[in-house]
Design a protein around this nucleic acid. Structure first.
Lengths: 197, 197
DNA sequence: CGAGTGGTGGACCGATCGGTCAAGAATTAC
DNA sequence: GTAATTCTTGACCGATCGGTCCACCACTCG
């Protein structure tokens, strides 16, 4: 045993994630990372490896947390149809979040062709999300809110595509009201049925 | 008059666009641009200004050309409903194009928060596209293929969001068959009606 | 309390970044 | 043919890049 670390690993990952989220991977310099974490180069490199590894680590942390939130939301919403609607509408929750977009989506657009590990992480994430949503679709079918002949996986993929489309529209700076209306329109067509109580 | 240029401006812009498309803005170095264009630094700078200006120029060229293609497709398709379906399905036309995504979409994800000019270009482009598609929606209403009470602009925005969602899913490397199925699913729900003859 | 261990901070590195500039080559106008 | 003018080439610039390394320090353990 010797001198203990003077930083909290989670806090560092959180700061790093925000930096990459706001500026992107390539546009974030090592100096930026030192500034937002308050660490020295030696500490950062000893703890996380180089810039790319640190990025992948932050990205994984982000997707894990997001996955947890999604599962919790899907599971805790009484009516599955409402959960699915909330899922699609998520990118529209507030204007700030809408412009920021999704770290995984931003990273995919920036790096999917250049970094195989990012691409792998993207596929992993979206397959996991699809599975989670599909499970919820099945529940909605049991509850009589989604036609029983619909393929759950295919339905989940369509909902995910719609959601990602909204994420993207938000990133273009579309006004939040307009974005919300578009989201409602998509939800109404993809998930028809009695409105939320 | 004096020595004429030894390069074709359009060829250069084309090469530059492809480079930015494949690697992104930040990850493209000046050296990359010299390589793909075959020009020297002086020529490039004299003709187009710095890297950022050149990028914006290539981006504008890209959106103009895309807009032209879209208008032509929408106008030349006999049945408006088919044109709308083709519009949504466009990102799925082939696997290569699907992985490459859309230069404007990629650029928006990478730079929307950092470069106001890119954001402006994004809004301009998507508003123009919405207008074009909305016009086609009106035609589809005249032809009895879209409910007359639907708001054309709102319908166009929903279709655009769905299309951009598909663009993004393609960028994650989703297999082309799966992507096509998802696209069909979205089209069937957002644009119901008699199938294409 | 002294030795040993691991963390920290910053000096330092070569490479590469975007960008400038000047000298020479190619062309036109006269 | 010559002068004027534009384009081309590549040497060169300071800044910054990501990354390494080491002297110093704080802490634990015996």
């Amino acid at each position: 045993m010797a001198r203990p670390r003077q930083f909290d690993e989670e806090r560092v990952l959180h700061a790093v994630r925000d930096q990459f989220w706001d500026a992107g991977y390539a546009a974030t310099s090592l100096e930026d990372l030192l500034r937002v974490t308050g660490l020295g180069k030696g500490s950062l490199y000893a703890a996380f490896g180089d810039k790319r590894r640190l990025f992948l680590r932050a990205l994984r942390s982000y997707t894990d947390v997001s996955h947890g939130y999604l599962r919790e939301m899907l599971d805790s919403t009484p009516r599955a149809l409402d959960a699915l609607r909330t899922f699609v509408m998520a990118p529209v929750s507030d204007a700030g979040a809408a412009r920021r977009g999704c770290l995984m989506a931003n990273s995919t657009c920036e790096l999917a062709t250049a970094d195989p590990d990012v691409l792998t992480e993207a596929r992993r994430t979206y397959e996991a999300t699809t599975a989670l949503v599909a499970e919820c679709v099945v529940r909605a079918q049991d509850e009589g809110d989604v036609p029983p002949d619909a393929d759950p996986i295919e339905t989940a993929r369509a909902l995910l595509a719609a959601q990602q489309g909204l994420v993207f529209m938000g990133r273009t700076g579309m006004e939040i009201g307009t974005l919300t209306a578009t989201a409602r329109s998509l939800v109404d067509q993809l998930l028809p049925g009695a409105p939320t109580s």
